[in-house]
Design a protein around this nucleic acid. Sequence first.
DNA 1: ATCGGATATCGATAGACGTCAACATAGACA
DNA 2: TGTCTATGTTGACGTCTATCGATATCCGAT
Lengths: 121, 121
Amino acid sequence: MSNAKVLPLLEPAVEPCCPPLTERPLTAAEAERTALMFKALGDPVRLRLFSAVASHEGGEACVCDISDVGVSQPTVSHHLKKLKEAGLLTSERRGTWVYYRVEPGVLAAMGQLLSPTAATA
Amino acid sequence: MSNAKVLPLLEPAVEPCCPPLTERPLTAAEAERTALMFKALGDPVRLRLFSAVASHEGGEACVCDISDVGVSQPTVSHHLKKLKEAGLLTSERRGTWVYYRVEPGVLAAMGQLLSPTAATA
DNA sequence: ATCGGATATCGATAGACGTCAACATAGACA
DNA sequence: TGTCTATGTTGACGTCTATCGATATCCGAT
């Protein structure tokens, strides 16, 4: 076993992917990686799905709770997969339903990217 | 001429567009609008250009200062236009050169979108 | 074992997007 | 005027992507 599900200490798994966009120009590799997250949120349907999960009580949502976004069921599934691949969501099957939740730290990481550099002339 | 029925110049997309993604599910209209900004940053080249402008001294940069991102000049111009259309950058010609700067408030607006709701169970 | 609901995958298609070369435009300067 | 540099625009091309219907898979219940 050993799944000691300890509470995250101060800094969870928020990898310091990249400095704030305002600190210095991103390198090609940094931009490549970071763009994946922005691109994942760059689709209206995905944005609604992500927001639905993120704002759902308990921090997680069953697909059935959020799939009313005006597209077909396969399309919903497709977009959830994309969000998962981008590292924004995780999923877990519990019985009949599959629950998605926001990957912890993701919001903080993206927020940091956008944080204005304090000492901007 | 005459058909001055041009698009209304893109509202300053900086407004209190939307609540944080974690507050409640975005509506279709909100998602549509918000996705435009994320999509604009969802390309590696655009992300590098934006970061280069945002981090440049004085808060602005000439195209000549930032166009070394590995793509042709027309492509750079194309991406800068996209960033402008998304409301993330503004441009101004001064003599020979064109200067781009980050639209004030944009970073704060996007940061707010990603701000975790304080009272998440 | 079988049925039915929930979700994922597959295959196809139309449209969006990134990229470039060629050309156009704007300003500086002689 | 004309030329040179800097930047934007156009048109074309190949690739990616969002979407759907059909189908498969998983799981609980009968």
